[in-house]
Amino acid sequence: MNLEKREIIINEIQYWRNNKLLPEQYCDFLTNLYDDEAAEKDNNPISLKNLQQGNIKIWLFGFGIISLIFLISLYFSVFPWPLQLATALSVLIVCYGYSAVYRGRNHVISLILAGLGSVLTLGFGLWMIALHDLDPQLWRPILIGACGLLWCILGFLLRIGLLQYCGYAFWALLYAGFFGGKRPEASILELELLWLPLCVMMVWLSWLLHHRVKGVASVFFAVGVSLWIMPELDALLLRQDYPQWISFMLILKIAVGLALLFLFRKKWITWVAT
């Protein structure tokens, strides 16, 4: 059938469905008849329609997954550490692996699985540090750096910008913690010199790579914009005994940043859209 005619028919069926002109099952039948994409989506086992139909395999699978999660949560602390590590890696591989599988089929499920895997990565790491009485001053920065690297790589491969952004945010946190320990008494000028070159570098990389590498320009630009106000956030949140005028300086920099974004909107929107 002609694609234009089929689209008209599908839109008409949706109109009937939304206005209750036909029963729901008739609309489903007609949609599956004329829309090949809808038929493919119905093959997805994790769908409300398949759950409503009472497929016993899907419900048993869900029961097994939920039971496995509770068993791991209850007995993880009594596992020997090699089994703990193997269990954590297995769960993460499953989450990220199925996120990659569903990336082209169902973007929402892919995002949920990637987010779950990311939360579990950090959670398992902190849990194992606490269980084995490891030195948090050493192992927490290692965990933060490892999570940041993992999320940057997976965010790029899976084309999940938010995951990639979180990876760079963890690296920024590690960077702030390192220099906070080295120079706890740093002046606001030192903090500006510490963060603003990184801000300029990330915005420049966004411009440089927006035609060359797909999926990184928007992330680099967002990271660069965030780093613009990091000196003030570093002073207010991670250091002590800073004057109150830092808060007014933060508001001023936000205003200046928004003004710059407005003035150069035609340029940076092109990078982000590309």
Rank of each mutant, 00 (worst) to 15 (best):
D234F: 14
A235I: 07
A235T: 07
L236Y: 05
L236S: 05
L237Q: 07
L237K: 04
L237C: 05
L238C: 11
R239Q: 09
R239N: 07
R239T: 06
Q240M: 10
Q240W: 12
Q240A: 09
D241F: 13
D241P: 01
Y242Q: 08
Y242H: 03
Y242N: 06
P243C: 01
P243F: 00
Q244V: 11
W245E: 10
W245S: 08
I246N: 00
I246Q: 01
S247F: 08
L250G: 02
I251A: 06
I251Y: 07
I251P: 00
L252I: 01
L252C: 04
L252T: 01
L252D: 00
K253Q: 07
I254V: 05
I254R: 02
I254L: 05
A255V: 04
A255T: 01
V256G: 08
G257P: 03
G257Y: 05
G257W: 03
L258K: 10
L258E: 07
L258N: 13
A259S: 12
A259R: 10
A259Y: 05
L260K: 12
L261D: 04
F262Y: 15
F262L: 13
F262M: 12
L263Y: 09
F264Y: 09
K266G: 13
K266F: 11
W268N: 00
W268L: 00
W268S: 00
I269Q: 15
T270P: 01
T270Q: 14
T270M: 12
W271G: 06
V272Q: 04
